[in-house]
Design a protein around this nucleic acid. Structure first.
Lengths: 258, 258
DNA sequence: GCAATAGTGTCTTTCAGACACTATATC
DNA sequence: GATATAGTGTCTGAAAGACACTATTGC
């Protein structure tokens, strides 16, 4: 423990030099990496987990949406700016995932990326997708079970499975792992559904995220015991057969974002 | 979704300008924040959770150890350098916690800090503590139960409870929350003990982290069922009464760092 | 034998999974 | 009434907490 810093000011306790004064100007004395945010925006399409990708103009490859953090901008604000939330995605669920900082991860230079993941029901993304041909929703392909972890691939609507740019496969895998872990103790599944929904749809969301089939009675008991949901008394639009009751988020379901 | 970036290169899709080329020189076009690491190095002292603090020379306050990330240095390497691990703490358990990036968190300028937490048994820290009068182990004071979360305070050996610098109380609180959550499904408690230890000591470590008393039979069953431990056949040094058997980490206990 | 801690057996309660069953809508 | 899905009751086995008990060591 001979190379200790205090309050982010570096001091070499091995050298005889005096400690650097804690002036703002000293921050300029170091070469600084670039800081970016990348966002894994997940949704569920046809009972499968899907992720928003953007085409990279140069090489026609695909990447997660991302951008540099401005000098006076909070990290989460940078993510929302990248997604232009104010126009189209207010109240989007967003959570910091992990910070990727291996020096070689971006061939253009030292870029440290703070990865976030976001959740939105498909309806919220449709408009944006229709606006831009450079955006796509690709289904997420996970080769590992449970919370083992590891990289994840994508499959585009045309069936292609292109590699993701940089270390974005690792970022995507980390998002799926985190989401699987939170599903049991936080109401994250609700973020992928409209305000009112039948329990069947919530079960389908859980199955899409976990990649397994769940038993209906156990699922209903568990999710209702959590206290995140309440029945509305409303029924879904009449289908061929018995329509299901619609549920909505409770007060507790708003708060338990653990 | 009108302000989209790809692969970390920012594009304003609202303007008519052509996208920026993906050249390395473009990274210089943005004001860059400084990037630091801060580390919450936790240990257990007299059955209480404790954290390594360093005195700040200017105002006599206390802070978590930290320092700036060098331009070609991985984040975790920066943490190990700050702790000068090669000399004193090889193999230290270290895990990324969260990245704190609110613009006002450091009065000297925009500093984004990637927080890590580390775990080490007290014996591993004694030598370093003896070397420097600017280091101290303070017990961690947590006002919340379970995994609620929130800031955490410290109490120095002399009984003082100074405020921590910057947002370090939040960082410390996040470390305790993470550790409490991992205790049940990862062998993190072992990181705070020597290679061989009686089960009583492991239970004391869990109690210190969780801030609650645990029942002995349930604790033994649970921890042995995990498969992280095996008996050595050895006994602790003869005490006044019956000596306990010493356990050690199994192969599985080495790997399950999930 | 006594003191004090190590370590175990067992009961109960809780909860997740499996399965079978009933209910209700359209046609 | 047929059909297909909504929704529930119940059994079972695994795991956690509570408690009482036995075991072993130095003195």
């Amino acid at each position: 423990l001979t190379n200790i810093c205090f309050g982010n000011i570096y001091i070499d306790t091995n050298s005889g030099a005096a400690p650097l004064p804690t002036a703002a100007a000293d921050l300029a004395a170091y070469d600084r990496p670039s800081v970016a945010v990348d966002v894994v925006l997940l949704t569920v399409v046809e009972d499968r987990l899907a992720v928003l990708l953007i085409r990279r103009p140069g090489d026609e490859g695909w990447a997660l949406p991302g951008g540099f953090v401005r000098i006076d901008e909070p990290l989460e604000a940078a993510v929302r700016r990248v997604l232009a939330d104010k126009a189209h995605l207010p109240g989007l669920f967003l959570e910091q995932l992990y910070t990727f900082g291996v020096p070689g991860r971006d061939p253009r230079g030292r870029v440290i990326s703070v990865a976030y993941y976001g959740l939105a029901p498909l309806e919220r993304l449709q408009e944006a997708l229709a606006e831009s041909a450079d955006l796509a929703l690709a289904t997420v392909e996970v080769a590992w079970a449970g919370e083992t972890g590891g990289p994840a691939g994508v499959r585009l609507p045309d069936g292609a499975t292109p590699p993701l740019a940089f270390d974005h496969a690792d970022i995507l895998g980390a998002a799926v792992k985190r989401l699987r872990g939170k599903l049991d103790y936080a109401p994250v599944g609700l973020e992928l559904l409209p305000a009112r929904f039948p329990l069947r749809d919530l079960q389908a969301v859980h199955e899409a995220i976990l990649g397994v089939r769940l038993a209906k009675p156990a699922f209903r008991r568990k999710v209702l015991d959590r206290g995140w949901l309440q029945p509305t008394g409303l029924r879904e639009a009449a289908s061929a057969f018995r329509p299901a009751e619609l549920y909505e988020r409770t007060r507790k379901g708003e708060e338990d974002h653990g």
